[in-house]
């Protein structure tokens, strides 16, 4: 808008000079210098505008190129207006070109901080995606194995017992008692197995009560007394909720199995868009995040959400597992 106004004014001034020159006798064509003077600021402005319209990441170089072009045209114009003597503009144009080519080469050879950041991000995403798929595949395998060796096998056994019982009904009814009792207890164990598998997939209490409630429910079932503190002012997204829940499960299971702790604490919080969960115990310490430990799996699950896990577990204790996951909360529970 302003550029157009400026261009119009410049054209008007140029025409005015032409009229003055014509009225003054149309001798030596001096208005060319006035036109030249008027064209310089316009040229620079157009060049900078063009340069800044280039795609992100190329703007600096494009602007530099445009300005270089305008300067070169300026030098050539001066040379022409000054009577086209020896071709001196070659030197400054050469200098400008060298600077521009240098700039372009540096741009090309050294990736920008932004590109570097993107490359790093892609690397992280590739790694965490692979990790997530590995974790998921292992989970599915575990679930299949649990069903095959658990509930399914028990139901087959129940069917066998009942089949045999049916046969014995006419021949030897007294012998049925044991078979039927066994079938009943196998059915109940199969139900237990199914509940365990379901809890391993998605504990119903997590859907009912959210992370905080589910962790409180979990704490009640453990052999080591666990205090749960803190509060989350809303509902954590389901995938994060599930990952955080199983992370706490793993930590608490480790405490029960390995730490000889007398008590454990889970502290939940949400600040500045980050869910934080800390699990502490007063046990013997010496836990590690190395491959093979359950905590490694937890780390891989959290990484998917750009979450982090840090572990402080000196020999002799205490052990603190601090987990942080950036996420957005949905509206507080009603």
């Amino acid at each position: 808008m302003i550029l157009r106004l400026e261009a119009n004014v410049s054209v008007a001034i140029g025409l005015l000079m032409l009229i003055i020159w014509a009225l003054a006798g149309a001798r030596h064509f001096w208005p060319a210098w006035v036109w030249f003077g008027l064209a310089i600021p316009l040229g620079f402005q157009v060049a900078i505008r063009r340069g800044l319209r280039a795609p992100k990441g190329h703007r600096l170089l494009a602007t530099h190129g445009a300005i270089t072009g305008v300067l070169a045209v300026m030098l050539l114009t001066i040379w022409v207006l000054a009577g086209a003597g020896p071709f001196w503009p070659v030197w400054p144009i050469l200098g400008l070109s060298v600077v521009f080519v240098g700039h372009a080469w540096i741009r090309h050879a050294l990736p920008s901080a932004r590109e570097q950041a993107l490359a790093d991000r892609v690397e992280v995403l590739t790694r965490t995606r692979r990790g997530a798929l590995d974790v998921q595949a292992a989970e599915l395998q575990r679930i299949e194995r649990d069903l095959h060796d658990g509930a399914q096998a028990r139901l087959v056994s129940v069917a066998m017992n009942l089949g045999l019982a049916e046969e014995l009904l006419s021949k030897n009814p007294q012998s049925l008692t044991e078979l039927l009792a066994e079938a009943r207890s196998s059915t109940l164990t199969a139900l237990d197995d199914l509940r365990t598998v379901m809890r391993g997939i998605q504990p119903p209490v997590l859907a009912d009560r959210g992370l905080e409630g589910a962790i409180r429910a979990l704490a009640l079932d453990l052999a080591v007394p666990v205090t749960v503190s803190g509060e989350i002012p809303g509902r954590v997204p389901v995938p994060v909720e599930s990952a955080a829940y199983f992370a706490v499960c793993e930590c608490l299971a480790n405490i029960v199995k390995h730490s000889s702790a007398l008590q454990a604490m889970v502290d939940l919080g949400y600040r500045n868009g980050v869910l934080s969960v800390a699990v502490r115990d007063d046990g013997v310490g010496g836990a590690s995040l190395t491959a093979g430990s359950g905590l490694r799996g937890v780390a891989r699950r959290l990484e998917v959400f750009d979450g982090t896990i840090t572990l402080a577990s000196p020999a002799g204790g205490p052990t603190v597992v601090q987990m942080e996951v950036p996420c957005e909360l949905s509206s507080p529970r009603t």
């Binding site: 096998a153 028990r154 087959v156 056994s157 066998m160 017992n161 089949g163 045999l164 046969e167 014995l168 196998s186």
Partner: peptide, 13 residues
């Protein structure tokens, strides 16, 4: 073991 025992019992019967 559960199924092994069940099978054996049926065959023996």
């Amino acid at each position: 073991a559960l199924l092994r025992d069940g099978l054996a019992r049926i065959l023996r019967a």
